[in-house]
Design a protein around this nucleic acid. Structure first.
Lengths: 340, 340
DNA sequence: CATCGTTACGAAAACGTTTCAGTTTTTTAT
DNA sequence: ATAAAAAACTGAAACGTTTTCGTAACGATG
């Protein structure tokens, strides 16, 4: 079912049919109607490749997503962002192509893959943003939106990490905790914001943070969080509350506590970050900061589409998505005398 | 960077360059070498759309995946299958495109989407296989592989559900349980196999299954499993062990038990199905049947590629993937006198 | 009636490839 | 040295679109 056959059925030329379908104004309403009608009847859709070849628009959005734990689509948090990105992209008529650098035998750079598939734009998330291949991509002429990292003069979507941590620490304070440890993820823009917000909030409350209360683990990796939690729990001056890099990693903290015979939240309080649904089904329900994966994904997609479809009138901007505290059940209330 | 520019650099015609890159034999080794060398230097890759237009091969595999809970990429089990499918597809030089029926304003059928993007083949998983749009796709001329459902004369990948349930029930029997209930998923090929295997195994042990021990819930839906579990636990003649449709739904059973003040596995035993990693981090670790998501995804991709690349010599066959019992900690040992 | 403006349509080039059917060059055989 | 065969290369069409430019038809205008 090509446009040629369709035009034959309509008794019109190829160009007329094409124009009728693409909203050109030099087509009478009558013929436009018949064309669209016949097209619908025959289930005609313009071939995406032919169209892409001619117009340089593939209606494909690239997604670059490479996490340390190699979880890919199974990522406990980002799979939600991706799902919503995909849904919004489809709403705008775009399909999604995952960008990688090993296609068959030959390996290509991310940028080469983008050119090869002629994606109209790229969403970059959860990756080592300092990787040379990534910066090569960012420095290209392609429309780009990044999630959780900002590049100069590029669209960026950011969850409000500063506010998230602040709310979380605030809440923990109201529960009477002062000895608060933080197991943060590897150095990155996100980690810096959260850790910075943690320090500033603690400073605001004029509570010093002992150096040994700051540990690190991999994101999305319960095993490394398990190790870090055990380390903190073995400290002579043990913290009463531990913040963990993310919800999924927090599973390692549950395990570490159980391993040392400690009850959550009676003996030790913990909190995660992300607010993934599954952790709200745990006993006890994890205290966390809910990131709005729907808005993050959808905004990323719609901003990217906007950038593609109206490059002139669209200026790169950063969009901050608010997050919400989930109180959960893993922060215990400390007796009054322990309050400062 | 088009083939035209490349040919100019090489001082050869377009056709020669094309043939040199595509392994034609009427090209001297010398020129082939220079062409490949220059191509690599310049980072040349043939434009995927132009190539697809000409060759009718897009090197894109469609994935059709629509679950009841609308979880999409976030599906606790299938995201693993998809991730492995994608990895294997990429190894063969194929990208993955998700097939849906709402692209922009216009809605197209699954088959139309496939034609529109000219995917070379489709993997169908976790969907209502009786949907007319799905059968339309299955009856098309496209290479197709299905996961967990078999169509006549089509490639199929199947996890060994019969054996999985058998092993699980066997194990539960050795722990002394006789009053075993099953919360199965909605009617489907998979459900039929598992439920059938459950009945047959129980029959083998000559243990009758009371009708009220069979409940149902949605797959991947803790809420509905919660409800079904509560129902079973409220029975006058309460079962000692409950099988749940899948691991993620089993979270609902943990909750139902806690809700009724019952300890797992002391007061009630439960088991899931799938063996998703997260449930092995729960306390207590869920007893389950581990499906080999790696092999399921990878086999689906490689069989599909085989079907695409050697249609003559490839005959549709069903591939059965073995699964493994995960003993976990959620099946309690019943005292001897309770044994039959 | 000639001219002009509109309106509606069509011819053809172009996008970047692959591939068929030549054509030129080189090698081999006589 | 010449013809034939083989090897190496090239021209051009084709894939299914979009889009520029041209033109036919037609009513309106002077």
């Amino acid at each position: 079912m090509t446009i040629k056959e369709l035009s034959k059925k309509c008794g019109l030329s190829i160009s007329t049919v094409s124009k009728a379908l693409n909203g050109y104004t030099d087509i009478s309403e009558a013929t436009r109607e018949t064309v669209t009608k016949v097209a619908k009847e025959m289930g005609y859709y313009p071939n995406a490749h032919a169209r892409a070849l001619k117009t340089k628009r593939s209606y494909n959005l690239g997604v670059l997503f490479v996490d340390d734990t190699q979880s890919g689509l199974t990522h406990a948090f980002f799979s939600f962002v991706l799902e919503n990105f995909k849904k919004e992209a489809e709403r705008h008529g775009y399909d999604v192509t995952f960008i990688s650098h090993n296609m068959g035998e030959t390996s290509m750079t991310y940028l080469e893959h983008c050119h090869y598939r002629e994606v109209d734009g790229v969403c970059i998330a959860c990756i080592d943003f300092l990787d040379t291949e990534v910066t090569q991509l960012v420095n290209s002429e392609l429309p780009i939106v990044t999630i959780d990292h900002l590049f100069n003069n590029r669209m960026g979507i950011q969850s409000n990490n500063v506010e998230g941590i602040r709310q979380l620490v605030d809440y923990i304070f109201t529960k009477g905790h002062r000895k608060i440890a933080y197991i943060h993820g590897p150095r990155s823009a996100v980690t810096d914001m959260r850790l910075g917000s943690f320090y500033r909030t603690m400073e605001f409350y004029q509570v010093p943070v002992p150096e040994e209360y700051i540990e690190s683990c991999e994101y999305n990796d319960p095993a490394s969080a398990f190790a870090a939690t055990k380390k903190l729990l073995s400290l002579p001056n043990r913290p009463t509350c531990i913040l963990i890099s993310d919800d999924y990693a927090a599973l390692g903290a549950y395990e570490a506590a159980a391993d040392m015979g400690l009850q959550i939240p009676q003996d030790i309080s913990i909190a995660g970050y992300d607010g993934i649904p599954m952790m709200q089904l745990m006993k006890p329900r994890l205290t966390s900061v809910l990131q709005d994966t729907h808005r993050i994904g959808a905004e990323a997609a719609s901003k990217l589409v906007q950038l593609i479809e109206s490059p002139k009138t669209t200026i790169p901007e950063i969009t901050v998505i608010p997050c919400t505290l989930i109180k959960g059940e893993t922060i215990g209330e400390l007796p009054k005398q322990d309050h400062k």
